[in-house]
Amino acid sequence: MKDLKTACLLFILLTVLLGGAYPAVVTATANLLFPHQAQGSFVMDKNGKVAGSLLIGQPFTEDKYFWPRPSATADFGYNPLASGGSNLGPTNQELIQQVKERITTLRVAGINGEIPNDLVLASASGLDPHISPFAAESQIPHVAKARGLSEEVVKKLVSVSTEERQLGFLGEPRVNVLALNLKLDRIVP
């Protein structure tokens, strides 16, 4: 009986400490040291208006933009309220069918040669903000054409937007699609 009382009291005290004080202190410290990150890494467009978060991908479909990866989120792709992947297994016919349709779309847009895997396979979060450098390069022709820019200019933009492996060996090289598209919008409205 004494142990039951102790269990209740200790649990309440620990809840106050771990569920109240701890997150509160972390929040205060984090917002002091890293306010931009703690608040969601939001970015502005050329007019100084919030254009989204650098970490949350957006659905671009127009030719003048670089396209992100397919997204399996509910209702519409890149729905931030429904993060998640397709969960389709590797032998699932639905997956194969989806990939075929996506390949057709890419071919129509003039992407020739080998298809970049990330442009036809959906991400785990459905919000992946990045594409591979290969996927970005393959899209240079259609973006350059739609914007009336030379491929050289767009290529340069892609190469300065490419993030290398962190610390030289962690993760994969990648291009942030929103950041790249915002840069394009700044150059040619």
């Binding site: 990939v99 390949i103 895997n117 396979l121 959906a122 991400s123 785990a124 990045h130 993760g171 994969e172």
Partner: peptide
């Protein structure tokens, strides 16, 4: 995924994976 490689898709099985992790 060999079933996708046959369709001309490059590289690793990235379905359900994030680009930054590979």
């Amino acid at each position: 995924n060999p079933l996708l490689r046959g369709l001309g898709v490059s590289g690793a099985n990235l379905e359900g994976k994030e680009v930054r992790f590979g």
